[in-house]
């Protein structure tokens, strides 16, 4: 293939590929209104959690994000089933919820691995080798279905660049050598790279702790 005919990458990593563009509606399906509580089963704990969130706000719709996050925790991703359950409890249409879910990076609208590894590849981290790190994590994780390895936009931890958020815990600065141990720690259910946990890092400003 000639260089000029090389396809220009349309959606590089960091951008989610739009999955629905080529999909038609299934005309054999019925429309999808607010689910009927009589026919939609919602796990009791999930319902309780969502209702708890709804009670916190003057308008219960504000609980959309926490509710979707809760459903994602239960189902692994915002599956149609998960969305329908949230819709049923919140009395919203599933379409409304999927519209919201697909807007946010942390809500998954297709199935993913249980353990999320978000590698920050934004400017500060990439200046310190984040793209290579991301490549290394991807390679090391291979097609292990347990992992959801994603290149993520700035995670707000440029002081430990390059870094990653592993199941929500920030670790860094990471080198490529750290990658195998990082994944092993996750697999073993241990705290990931304890010495590189942001939670224990002192402030860089020397006078701050004086």
């Amino acid at each position: 293939m000639s260089a000029l005919r090389r396809p220009i990458p349309r959606y590089a990593h960091g951008s989610r590929v739009p999955p629905g563009w080529d999909e038609a509606a299934d005309l054999t399906k019925e429309p999808s209104p607010v689910p009927d509580p009589a026919t939609t089963e919602v796990p009791a704990t999930l319902r309780e959690e969502i209702e708890g969130h709804m009670a916190l706000y003057p308008d219960s719709r504000s609980a959309t994000l926490p509710a979707l996050e809760a459903a994602q925790r239960v189902h692994g991703w915002c599956s149609p089933e998960a969305i329908e359950q949230v819709a049923c409890v919140m009395r919203l249409t599933p379409a409304y919820l999927v519209s919201v879910a697909s807007f946010y990076d942390m809500l998954e609208t297709s199935p993913v691995g249980k353990h999320s590894v978000y590698v920050c590849t934004n400017i500060s981290c990439s200046l310190r080798g984040a793209d290579e790190l991301y490549g290394a994590v991807r390679t090391a994780a291979g097609d292990d279905p347990e992992f959801n390895v994603r290149a993520f936009e700035c995670l707000g931890a440029c002081d430990i660049a390059p870094m990653a958020s592993v199941d929500g815990a920030y670790v860094g600065p990471l080198s490529i050598e750290d990658v195998p141990r990082l994944l092993d720690d996750v697999r073993a259910g241990r705290e990931v790279l304890p010495e590189k946990q942001l939670a224990r890092r002192p402030c860089a400003d020397a006078e701050a702790s004086a």
Binding site: R16, V17, P18, G20, W21, A25, V98
Partner: peptide
């Protein structure tokens, strides 16, 4: 659904 240049008009789960 989605956002930015990827946004597209759609329904829930192919309904």
């Amino acid at each position: 659904q989605e956002r930015g240049a990827h946004s597209y008009v759609s329904t829930f789960d192919g309904h």
